[in-house]
Amino acid sequence: MNDALLSVRNLSVSFSTYGQTAEVLKDVSLDVPARSQIALVGESGSGKTVTMKAIMGLLHHPPATITGGQIFYDGRDLLTMPARERLKLRGTAMSMVFQDPMSSLNPVFTIGDQMGTILKYADRRLGRSRGKVERMARVHEVLGQVRMRDPERVTRSYPIMLSGGMRQRVLIAMALLSEPKLLIADEPGTALDVTTQAQILKLLKDLVEERGLALMMITHNLGVVRETSSYVYVMNKGVVVEHRPTAELFASPADPYTKALIGAVPRLTGGSGFGRAGAAA
């Protein structure tokens, strides 16, 4: 195909419930080149999460059915490869940073237990093995990479003992455990205060640049798109309505939906005012 690390070609997904079928993704194509930072932006119901789930293989069937298209990772189609092969990639070559740091962590295990377990099974899938001591060393190393000041204390903590920002850092660390090449971040920091969110976004950007990862940022916040990505795909009702370099998108949006969406965002400089908000919905 092409040389992108991740390439989604004409992906269509429908959901069927009670005999009715709804097409939620129509011919979605997108590329994530290696070491690039791309964003997938859309409002609720636009299909951005379904796209992410299809890529990660997290769609449940039923109700979801992939009705067409291919998803290439490193030139290999994820949808036709054997399940065992695909399992080897998930959480290792490509990993996810989840949105809600409270519900994505198990409240009854320490952070060290949870990260150790993730690493153990990632190793097993890849046919590697390492001892408990080595595993913990790796966990501490990764926690250090997400700028945790005291990794030993964090590994002994239960999720409730950490602040929202720290928990989000733990989720990023979990995604980095097996040195992925592609990081998919689903609305990171949305559940956090604005100052904490800014810290998390900066951390994520620094990590991606330092380590040469590709980042796919899924978000509804156009400000986050502008600050974290260089190329952007805008989705609406299961269709990619516009895709171009981020700076260009904000300078001259072409699609009417994108225009309305950008017009609806309140400006920090004021004067954008309400009353001329577009009919984006």
Partner: peptide, 16 residues
């Protein structure tokens, strides 16, 4: 700090 943390969508906003 609060103002500096807001993700914005234009260069004018970023400048302020």
């Amino acid at each position: 700090l609060l103002l500096a943390s807001v993700p914005v969508i234009s260069a004018e906003e970023a400048a302020m």
